[in-house]
Design a protein around this nucleic acid. Structure first.
Lengths: 192, 192, 192, 192
DNA sequence: CATGAATGAGAGTTCATTCAT
DNA sequence: GATGAATGAACTCTCATTCAT
């Protein structure tokens, strides 16, 4: 890895911490300068704006999530098993401090055209994967009928909402688990 | 109505348009000055910040929504009838240009302490009313079992998500209708 | 006394309180409006600026001081008796809360042309009266020789200094008494 | 000397001129921008307020005065010689255009908490040094008896007064000399 | 006389961004 | 590649002052 690549990595790590702490719009280029120890000019050589940094951070995170889901799907698990894994993953993420990054992502989407684009990419990506699981469950006959993509969107909307509201309310762990679990109730054909 | 009240009204109307067009953080006091034709000092006489304006706008809107729901509840309608009315109201709102104000509300909550407060007020208010309807449906034996408030929160999270994402995606009318209708599927004991 | 005169009086009283509390430059026309309960236009009908108010307040206070000294001089007291009375008067004033007005006077002189003028009037007035006492003491053979006016100026400079510094330091009563008493040591031919 | 140091120096010099001409409160950041040719942002990189500048200017000046007096005291001169040197120094300063800075210092003390602090530092510093001279003169048996610090304060009050009033009156050189010389008359045991 | 809404100039402050070194 | 001084645009906010009612 070249020296430049290393510096870029380091900047993204520090920036990620800042976004997690302060959201998107409150982080200025000066903040990143201070956090990385780089000068103004030095930083600008690598990134032209905080948005550029957040874009990369979010894309990478998205990549990881996609990879995980793909692995689940190729392992030949049942739809219910995958659903439970998904639910567990979302719960863990929501309860981790990293979930604050979602807030930054939201701000970014609301304030900036590129941010809006990234947000759409992310949503689509999640929808597509989720739809695959839904289709699988329908084939197995355990999930409700209906357009898989539309159903997937419904889940994504709910997740988006809880992501946005969670940091505002400081929801408790059990509450979050219960909420995420409602997805099961919504998806399953036979009520348990 | 006094002259001052008139001006305040006029400012709020113009500000509401601006918030709908540009969200919360992109609207500056100068923007409101230009839109209203008032001078700097003249505007400050009435409102000290754009947040103050948005606070009033959102509270009033909330008031209207509350009033409508209260009327439904006191008219002795069945839970299903009220649910359908609610779904219709949400759909209509989401498809109106005014729904972009929800985006501004979200930004406000993410960027400002008062905004966060307002957002919580709004969410709680909706949760309480929705929980009443859920309870009614449970008594009638048509809605799923479970803590009414928790179920209400689930619906609110979904609505919050769709409110936030909708303006980013430009969803089509039919799609929005389908999505909102999923609430029925989630709530009803017997799948239709 | 006409109604207008009454209002003017009332304004000056309230303004005097404000100047005593906050100095000259920190008092705005709005402050006076709030304190008097008058509207902007109403206040402007009587006074065009806070400076105008302070000018009148200071002139009146000066008038009172002059009158007192004149009375002392016409009562045929000895120079030493008058000096002691003066010293007592200055001490009392310095230890009273009203002495904070002197700070306002100082600010006014430093910030405004009229204030400078008033300050000069006040100083001259004090110098002239003090010089009369000095001359009297010299004729009685108890005060040091030298140009009475110059000696009077020296005393005025000292008083001005202690007026300015006092509120900044919060000097104790005994200290103020000792300081003012040095005037005796300076003036008297025979050291006591 | 670094570029930044150079700019800082330059700013302080220009600011000092402005303070001398216009006092403290009349000097705005914009004035300093115009005088230095710097942009708004450029100036703020070095100083956050005019008060910060004046603080540095006054502290440096105080340092110089202290150093001079310390030199006099260590050179083993007699109290009377030092007194004369002091009197000469004060006279020279008062007659120089730089004495107008004292006015700015006064305004600063009256308007700003930090200014008040600086003023106190300056006064205390002068009092301490003066008290040393007074003590020396008492030991030599040529100065009047009494607490040296209290006597020093008396002199400082007078100097403060003349510093404040001088620029308002435009006193003539001879007058200033006579006034400062009264300090001798006050301090000396045997009247000359 | 009095009201208070409105004006408009100007101070303060912050930031993304550039550029000579 | 890196530095950090400097730019300049934009925004917030405050007041003295005016004027229609």
């Amino acid at each position: 890895m070249s020296k430049s690549e290393n510096t870029k990595r380091m900047i993204l790590e520090k920036a990620s911490e800042l976004f997690t702490q302060k959201g998107y719009s409150a982080v200025t280029m000066k903040d990143v300068c201070d956090a990385t120890g780089l000068s103004r000019g030095g930083l600008y050589r690598h990134f032209g704006s905080t948005g550029e940094m957040l874009t990369l951070i979010l894309r990478e995170e998205q990549q990881n999530a996609d990879d995980k889901l793909r692995m689940c799907l190729t392992e030949g698990k049942s739809a219910l098993q995958i659903l439970d894994a998904l639910i567990e993953a979302h719960t863990t993420f929501l309860l981790s401090p990293k979930s604050a990054l979602e807030l930054a992502a939201n701000q970014y989407a609301l304030l900036d055209a590129t941010g809006k684009e990234i947000n759409m990419e992310r949503a689509w990506s999640t929808v597509k994967r989720t739809a695959q699981v839904v289709r699988l469950g329908q084939e197995e006959g355990v999930f409700i009928d209906g357009d898989p993509q539309s159903i997937a969107w419904h889940i994504v909307f709910f997740l988006s909402g809880i992501h946005t509201q969670k940091p505002l309310f400081g929801l408790e762990d059990d509450f979050v688990r219960t909420q995420i679990n409602y997805i099961r109730g919504f998806l399953l054909k036979e009520k348990e």
